[in-house]
Amino acid sequence: MYGSINLRQTLIALSVIFLAGIWMANVNSHHYDIKNVTISEADSLIKAGALVIDVRDQDKFNFRHIPGAILIPLEVLRAGIPLSLAAFKSRPIVIYCNEGLSHGPEGTAILQKAGFAKAVNLESGIEGWAKSGMPIQRG
């Protein structure tokens, strides 16, 4: 009798842990209806004059960023679109974060919702950009 109770309790506990793991994996996962671009596509857009926005924080930007990128942390975009971006509403904009999975997509969605229809997310972020040997600027 005790063996079957312990087995049942163990199976219930494992099921709860499994379901909690699935829930935790999805709790911060958002799907944004945005366009993601590859490093090659982003590079072409940048060479054609796209604005490049880094949505990470100041320390990460200072450590490394795409040359010519401007820093507009995601918290700033969440609070409201800076007036300085108004002139870029019809231009392509490449947004990136660290790995292209959270801040970049959210920043892109915020800009698109504000009418920046040509805003795209660099799907691999600065990590993928750097790993592929693309130019990096420090400071």
Score class of each variant (00 low, 15 high):
101 L>F: 06
116 F>N: 00
118 K>E: 05
117 A>Q: 10
4 S>N: 12
18 F>K: 09
133 G>K: 04
139 G>A: 14
96 Y>D: 04
54 D>Q: 03
7 L>Q: 13
137 Q>K: 11
56 R>K: 07
68 G>E: 09
33 D>P: 01
10 T>C: 15
11 L>P: 00
36 N>I: 14
20 A>W: 08
132 S>H: 09
65 H>M: 05
76 V>N: 09
99 E>L: 14
37 V>A: 00
40 S>M: 10
78 R>P: 07
3 G>T: 10
27 V>D: 15
45 L>V: 01
25 A>R: 13
124 S>M: 12
41 E>G: 04
138 R>Q: 08
11 L>V: 07
31 H>Y: 12
120 V>I: 06
46 I>G: 01
37 V>T: 03
7 L>R: 10
67 P>C: 07
61 F>G: 03
123 E>M: 10
1 M>A: 07
84 S>V: 15
3 G>F: 12
92 P>R: 06
35 K>P: 00
58 Q>F: 10
112 Q>G: 05
78 R>N: 13
106 E>Q: 05
124 S>D: 13
12 I>G: 10
38 T>K: 01
69 A>S: 01
133 G>A: 07
75 E>S: 15
134 M>G: 03
99 E>A: 15
23 W>Y: 13
57 D>K: 08
20 A>Y: 03
82 P>G: 10
90 S>M: 10
8 R>N: 14
41 E>A: 07
125 G>P: 04
102 S>K: 08
119 A>H: 01
39 I>L: 03
41 E>S: 05
68 G>W: 07
137 Q>A: 12
136 I>Q: 07
138 R>P: 00
48 A>L: 00
106 E>G: 01
38 T>D: 05
47 K>D: 06
63 F>Q: 10
44 S>A: 11
120 V>Q: 05
18 F>V: 13
33 D>G: 02
121 N>G: 03
8 R>F: 15
25 A>T: 14
89 K>T: 12
103 H>L: 13
73 P>K: 11
52 V>H: 03
64 R>L: 13
55 V>W: 00
76 V>H: 09
12 I>K: 10
72 I>W: 02
16 V>H: 03
4 S>P: 07
109 A>K: 03
114 A>R: 00
13 A>D: 11
77 L>C: 02
69 A>K: 04
80 G>H: 07
59 D>I: 10
28 N>F: 08
11 L>K: 05
79 A>C: 11
101 L>S: 08
24 M>L: 15
124 S>E: 12
22 I>H: 02
101 L>M: 09
42 A>N: 01
51 L>R: 01
26 N>W: 14
28 N>Y: 08
32 Y>W: 07
41 E>M: 04
49 G>I: 00
84 S>R: 13
40 S>D: 13
77 L>H: 04
33 D>L: 05
5 I>F: 08
1 M>G: 11
133 G>Y: 05
118 K>D: 05
35 K>I: 05
25 A>C: 09
73 P>Q: 10
68 G>M: 07
110 I>F: 05
62 N>F: 15
84 S>F: 13
17 I>W: 12
48 A>H: 00
53 I>G: 01
6 N>L: 14
9 Q>E: 14
61 F>E: 02
84 S>M: 14
66 I>V: 06
